[in-house]
Simulated scan of single mutants.
Amino acid sequence: MKYFLSLFALLILPAMGPWKAACEGATACELGDRSYHVRAPDEWDEATPMPVMLHFHGWGRQGNLIVNHGRIAGHTRRRGVLLLAPNGNGRTWDFWQAGSQDVDFAAAVIEDAAKRYPIDRSRIYISGYSYGAAMAWRYACDNGDEVAALLAISGTLQQSEECAEGPRTIRHVHGLDDTVMGFPMGPGGDTTNPVALWRRQFDCGTGAKLPDWNAREFLTFQRTQWDNCADGHSVTLDIHSGGHFIPHGWIGWQLDQLMGRAPQYP
């Protein structure tokens, strides 16, 4: 009987894959003296390479919140996207200038996750909220050539910065009434200023006003898109009348559109 049990274990363990024993959810993955959290999608077949969304938490938070957050993990897990949520030192991020060690750490998180799960490197999305959004901008600015899209919520870098790299696609959302990381209004009330850095870097032309949209009836987004940028880059800005929060459905809609699906909620 012991022989048959041992043989059974040998047969099933390769099929189960290393991720079955890996850290996930509330259990952090250790990476040197740092750590991160993971949430795999609900209906993953445990074989197909997954798109990845790495999300930087807001100030004072940690990744365990992100992997259980309805407006973040609630969307990735339904769309076959592997969610990575790194933990910031002191519950914050160093995004203030180029050369941040947090960029190197986040890149190492992706590489470590790739040892645990099969990932689709052509679909790596970098996201963040508040201070985490500014950190996502920093990552995209310093290490963006390997990033398919930046999905940033209510946080930016100074629009005067010069970036060494940049993702193929930029998507940013910001509330006009944000009193925490205030809406970066441009000269003369220019509401397209939150993405001026990327429009300049990608040599974009005039933006097109697209129809207003919403994932939930109580919050409407005004969208401007620049799909005329150099080398196939594109920039999209959504603005709303609210304040400093993660909008219901925003991440899910962006992921759907980036993956060529009809946007839906949740």
Rank of each mutant, 00 (worst) to 15 (best):
S154Q: 10
G205L: 03
G188A: 12
T192L: 05
D190S: 13
C204S: 01
G207R: 05
V173K: 04
T206D: 13
C163V: 00
P184L: 02
Q158P: 06
V180D: 13
V173S: 04
G189I: 13
H172I: 09
Q201M: 04
R199S: 01
Q158W: 06
W198Q: 02
G166S: 05
L210N: 05
E162F: 06
I170P: 14
G205R: 02
L210A: 09
C163H: 03
A208T: 15
P187H: 13
E217D: 15
L150W: 06
A148P: 11
F218V: 14
P184E: 01
G175F: 07
L210K: 04
Q201W: 01
D177P: 12
T206M: 08
G207V: 07
S154T: 08
K209W: 10
P184T: 04
G188H: 11
D178S: 03
D177R: 14
L157M: 01
W198H: 00
G207P: 03
D212Y: 10
R168D: 14
G186E: 09
M181G: 03
E165C: 07
G175A: 08
R199C: 02
W213F: 06
G205I: 03
D177T: 13
L197G: 01
G175Y: 11
N214M: 15
L151I: 15
W198E: 03
M185H: 12
Q159R: 07
F202N: 06
N214Q: 15
G186V: 05
P187Y: 12
M181I: 08
I170T: 05
T206C: 04
T206Y: 03
T206A: 14
F183R: 04
H174C: 05
W213L: 03
L210E: 11
G189S: 14
G188Y: 10
A208M: 14
C204A: 02
S154R: 06
D190V: 11
E161A: 12
F202R: 02
A164E: 13
A215R: 15
G166V: 05
D212V: 09
Q158D: 15
T206L: 08
G205M: 03
V195Y: 05
M181V: 07
T191L: 07
C163Y: 00
K209E: 15
L210D: 09
P167V: 01
R216Q: 15
E165A: 03
Q158R: 14
D203N: 05
R199P: 01
P211V: 02
A215K: 13
D178Y: 02
A164Y: 10
E165F: 07
V180N: 12
G207T: 04
A215M: 15
T156K: 06
G205E: 02
T156Q: 09
D190C: 11
D178F: 00
G186R: 08
F218K: 15
N214V: 12
T191F: 07
D178M: 04
Q158C: 10
